[in-house]
Design a binder for these strands. Structure first.
Lengths: 120, 120
DNA sequence: CAGAATCCTATACGATACTG
DNA sequence: CAGTATCGTATAGGATTCTG
């Protein structure tokens, strides 16, 4: 039945990579995670605020990645038990620590796009 | 023929996102790109050296991402015209600029894994 | 040595509709 | 408001074989 190999590269990857960059990628590597985290850097946000802040993301992706970020202890979800629901997301301590990374990424992005304007 | 919508979110994403983090993700977002770049930070490397340094990557992924990194002007390929072939890869100026980002990622990775050791 | 080609699976991602 | 559920496509990624 076209089994997947026990020792496939895929399994090996997830298992034990001592590379800290690999470790980080596995936590913030999704296409949307850095963007979500970047939005949360400016403070707690409601679900609907995040959706508005990132128009390109679908509800499915937003929820899915928010869940993964919670599982990885980067984001904390706080829900008031009221009607209508009031749910806010904010960075955990580990999430706050990513500020340096995300800012570096953002700065590089700006610098690199400028570089291409010049050479164009 | 199950056409894709003209104004699909997918197209919108690639088009114009003003978010610098999104821009950066689009350039270094692949699962392997940061790892490859991280390896090249320590200096020029031959193809085979990269392969050895990153055992988990397949040849296809390695070549594919190296190509994309070249297209994005982050990595430069230099081939000596000899037999057997001698090809080295090294960081461009823009690639070097990523050092800050990659180091920040690596440091965060180390810190975060320590954090989980404590709480476990 | 450095890579290209082929074929396949797994996952990411998106659109839409529905719910407590 | 803040999600779930379902279904579909697109892309990433992997195994293997072959070549200048």
């Amino acid at each position: 039945m076209t089994q997947i190999k026990e020792n496939s590269t895929r399994n090996f990857n997830k298992a034990t990579s001592p590379c800290p960059v690999t470790y980080a990628i596995n936590k913030i590597g999704g296409h949307w995670k850095p963007i979500i985290l970047y939005q949360l850097m400016s403070g707690p946000k409601r679900y609907s605020e995040l959706k508005r802040a990132i128009p390109a993301v679908t509800e499915k992706m937003l929820i899915q990645h928010l869940k993964q970020l919670q599982d990885d202890n980067l984001v904390i979800r706080k829900a008031e038990n009221v009607v209508p629901p009031f749910v806010t997301y904010f960075l955990s301590e580990a999430g706050e620590d990513l500020t340096i990374v995300l800012n570096a990424m953002a700065e590089w992005g700006i610098r690199d796009s400028k570089r291409h304007l010049k050479s164009a």
